[in-house]
């Protein structure tokens, strides 16, 4: 009976989870080599060559990884600091409400908030103007569609930090870090030693898979960089959609090339993350 239930579960997982993903991937591969698509006429590697030669993919990849990496590091650090500094206060209703509110905000909305607040014609620019700090709207610093992706990172950090606060608080309680801290202190450890040898290792060890997944999630995010990013380089999802929706139908396959490379990378990264997690838990 239990065996059969397991089989049905597995079958459903394959049908609903694996099959659509694999079919989409196979379709993208076929499209990228010209074997699918009404405007394509047979096998060719020219789309792969075009993507490789333009160098746009690598630029976009580096740009996306940079943005995702910085956003995750800043969010994790900020969340860690908030957790350790305000662990007691965070139990209060009003403070936790303020901190967790961004969790309920979808990416698109967060991006629009950023535009409303930080654009040259946005709220802060108007304050600055009325306070006499700037004489014209265009003197306000560049935070939206800017070359350093500050707007994108700010949006990511706003959305992601509360999640990590929640996560670290839970781990802090479940792993009884407070008791362990007391124990370490009673054994003579100073505050710095407790932080670096006890608290941080425990919190990070329990959460690094999720931190890694968040990096992948941000790497592939679409709406926020679409609204807040610049035209070149663009983050991966924006680049892929742009290529797939482009005016020149004969080059749509190039978008699928990027999508295929990106999928392979993300799948490998995910497998690696879980494989290593499994082996560490096995060992532990």
């Amino acid at each position: 009976m239990k065996n059969r239930r397991l089989h049905i579960g597995l079958l459903l997982f394959v049908l609903i989870g694996v099959l659509p993903f694999v079919s989409a991937f196979v379709y993208a591969v076929l499209y990228s080599v010209g074997l699918a698509g009404v405007v394509n006429d047979g096998f060719t590697l020219r789309f792969w060559a075009a993507v490789w030669n333009s160098g746009e993919f690598l630029r976009s990849f580096g740009y996306s990884a940079g943005i995702a990496g910085i956003s995750v590091v800043v969010s994790v650090s900020a969340a860690m600091w908030l957790t350790l500094q305000f662990k007691r206060e965070l139990q209060h209703r009003w403070l936790s409400f303020v901190i967790y509110l961004p969790l309920a905000i979808p990416g698109v909305v967060a991006a629009f908030f950023m535009v409303q607040l930080f654009a040259k014609s946005g709220l802060f620019s108007r304050f600055a103007y009325h306070l006499g700090w700037i004489a014209e709207a265009r003197e306000f610093p560049d935070l939206i569609n800017d070359p350093y992706a500050l707007g994108i990172m700010l949006a990511f950090i706003t959305i992601v930090t509360p999640f990590f606060v929640l996560l670290f608080l839970n781990v802090y309680q479940n792993e009884r870090v407070a008791e362990l801290t007391e124990l370490a202190e009673s054994l003579g450890a100073n505050k710095k030693q407790v932080l670096w040898r006890v608290t941080l290792p425990i919190l990070l060890r329990k959460t690094w898979t999720l931190i890694g997944l968040y990096f992948i999630f941000l790497l592939g995010s679409y709406e926020v960089p679409l609204i807040l990013g610049q035209e070149s380089p663009q983050m991966l999802s924006v680049l892929i959609i742009r290529e797939i929706k482009q005016y020149d139908l004969s080059k749509i396959s190039e978008g699928y090339v990027v999508a295929v490379i990106y999928t392979i990378f993300v799948s490998l990264a995910a497998v690696l993350l879980f494989y290593r997690k499994k082996s560490t838990t096995d060992a532990g």
């Binding site: 040259k120 014609s121 014209e136 709207a137 070359p147 679409l226 610049q230 070149s232």
Partner: peptide, 19 residues
């Protein structure tokens, strides 16, 4: 000229604000 608006629609507000 480091970047260009993705869509014309965002230009309306920039025109309205004098940017």
């Amino acid at each position: 000229g480091k970047t260009f608006p993705k869509e014309h629609s965002v230009m309306d507000q920039m025109f309205a604000s004098g940017e």
